[in-house]
Amino acid sequence: MAEAPVLAVRNLRKHFVQRKGFPNPVTVTVRAVDDISFAIRPGEAFGLVGESGCGKSTAARALLRLIEPDAGSVTYRGEDVLAARGGALKLLRRKLQIVFQDPYSSLNPRRTIAQTLVEPMQVHGLARGADALARARALLDEVGLPAAALDRYPHEFSGGQRQRIGIARALAVEPELIIADEPVSALDVSIQAQVLMLLKDLQARRHLAFLFVSHDLGVVRWFCQRVAVMYLGRIVEEGPVEDVLHEPLHPYARVLRDASPVPDPALRAALPRIEGEIPSAANPPAGCHFHPRCPRALPACRESFPATTEPAPGRRVACHLYPAEDRASVR
């Protein structure tokens, strides 16, 4: 618990500003990521869950600077990721890698698997020539593909195999943290399990930390140790996976949990249904964004966005039901 985090994100923000219409343009601001904070410890798998459009993928890209965030800070082992440039940024890129959702578009169709795996090593000066090829072969073996794959092109592989190649490419630069952006949701269910097993295996063997972005609570429950729940650009609850998914504090987390299939039929009681439409992130409701759909909304929810409190050790929630001074009432 006391171990220093490998990645700390503080008040990260990304707003998209669009100007639409002629001749009187209207400015629309989409608050895709609005002041989110979390920290990932070494070797830990941290889940980021939420419905599609809640900003979880944007958050993942913003902290890697694949899109430049507007505000906030991201530190990797105390180093400022957002301020880094040139060689320092390149070094950080080695340490933070990403695995994409779509295994079809994430590999360049015109490049062989060998080229795809060797190129990152060369760019970072890790290996070249026969040495690099040997390392590529070892990487393929590690992700469960034969060395014969080296000379082939991506279109010769299935989705699951491509995802393994994408993972091998991320491993080629020996990262310490991998951001997995819905890494299995584009795959068949039977393949999903295999790729998840592989990731779990790599996590243990290489002591990798993960930021695991997903909408699938079942997968997150199995893979992650801690989880944060996002709703319309904000983190509404964060804590250990078991606690958050079994006994959610925030009404949205509860609704999300109830909506996802639970393997135990005994738990499937009469559950409150989620009401109303998901509001747009371009025009979120005032106060707590969730209040129009919330079964337990208070008058205060309309007025102001709740501060984040820590009702129990290691658990954080942003909800007016849990005021800061009222820590004892949860248990």
Partner: peptide
């Protein structure tokens, strides 16, 4: 396409991404 984003995440230069 995601492979361009992957290239950036891997620290490739813009020139490399464009021309390679």
């Amino acid at each position: 396409r995601a492979f361009v984003e992957a290239g950036r995440a891997l620290g490739f230069s813009h020139a490399r991404i464009i021309f390679v």
